[in-house]
Design a protein around this nucleic acid. Sequence first.
DNA 1: CGCGCCCTTGAGAGTAGTCAAGCTTTGTGG
DNA 2: CCACAAAGCTTGACTACTCTCAAGGGCGCG
Lengths: 235, 235
Amino acid sequence: MTTRPILSRRQLAALDLFHGLAAPALDEARDLAVCRALAGDTRIFNQGDAPVRAHILIEGNVRIAQSGSDGGEIVVRFIAAGEMFGTMALFTDRTYPADADTLTDVVEASWSETDLRRMMIHHPQIAINALQIAGRRLQEAQNRLRELSTQPVERRIASTLLRLARQTGCSTPDGLTIGVPLRRKDIADICGTTLYSVSRVLTGWEKHGFVRTRDQRVTIAGLPQIRNIAANGGS
Amino acid sequence: MTTRPILSRRQLAALDLFHGLAAPALDEARDLAVCRALAGDTRIFNQGDAPVRAHILIEGNVRIAQSGSDGGEIVVRFIAAGEMFGTMALFTDRTYPADADTLTDVVEASWSETDLRRMMIHHPQIAINALQIAGRRLQEAQNRLRELSTQPVERRIASTLLRLARQTGCSTPDGLTIGVPLRRKDIADICGTTLYSVSRVLTGWEKHGFVRTRDQRVTIAGLPQIRNIAANGGS
DNA sequence: CGCGCCCTTGAGAGTAGTCAAGCTTTGTGG
DNA sequence: CCACAAAGCTTGACTACTCTCAAGGGCGCG
């Protein structure tokens, strides 16, 4: 599991974090990267762990979940191939603020704090790219906050599925399939409800033919209907 | 209202965004800044406006609020002196994602997108500082998400007041006073509830002597009790 | 076959939202 | 200086959404 796939310059250039960089910078990133392959259902890091490294997922899916001092737990984000994770903590806490678990077999690359900081100083574009990513996630978090404050459960579930579909979806004969394996509990933890409510809503939709679940894969068959629910609550 | 207070190098050096910069960089920032004084209760920018500028609040208080396509509205954040705002949008949308209103008379400085980007390229530390700020806000947003998903209203209100006290509070004979004028509706919009629920909870606390409200200024008299409610729900 | 995991379904309870009305404070103009 | 209007706050009654708890079904795996 700790084989070392080699990253190519081209692979790095395709990542948002390294977008727009010249060849020497990419080579530097490649040479400093630690690259690992991990099995599914493995813990990558724990909330509270130090030291923090900057991670990028090359292949597979990862779930980032945060559990509070109370029992409460939320899924912060699902990470798809090409996304960075665990990286913002470098600049704040210096301990990971959440747990990261693999959902599938994955390949990930990571950099030490000092290496990343050095690269950012030498190639400020990296820092600016990171800023863009952080900005997008901040907006996403704020949208989730607004949804959570103002919208009923059914609508939030619809919005969540659409967001996941946009992030990881791929078209199939049956419709748009979300690329991440999702248990009811996962969906509940993303959109701030319980697995019971998710189950009720989803079986309702399934009866109408809007969605289908098979083996933890959710397929959106009635995109317009789901969009309508997300936008108007289905009225 | 568009007098031009001059920023000193020392003032700039005290800001998180420019922390750790050498004198020439600070001078560059000073020379490119547009600095304005504005009256209380004024709109600084509207959600959707372009072009986006990077703002820093020098003096006073600002409320950042986002209203969704539905009627829903949340207060994203209260900005205190020294904090940046409206800046992350430079790297994502290029339109402001929220409204900004002054709550008091304020002085703010701002930079154009091109100027800020140029400064970041020349002085990567600025980008790294921005990254740190973004990281903190992202974590804060995630904490709010968790609270909103898992905690009852009373507890969220307690957490919110504590957060605001930490951010803007100052000690007074009566206790810890929050430095931002807060209407019931503002509190409700921060912690995802209604002004009615806030009113009930706050008058309850006021009867027990935990808090006091006077002229939209909230004072926490019983810090331990409020902390207890935030942590255990008051049990 | 039995165990574990995930999902569904039902019944009941409670938190918090909605609506409506009245009160307090602040500021303004006669 | 008073009166009135506007804005903000409190309170009560009612409603309902969604959580909780409990039980049972399907599926895969040892």
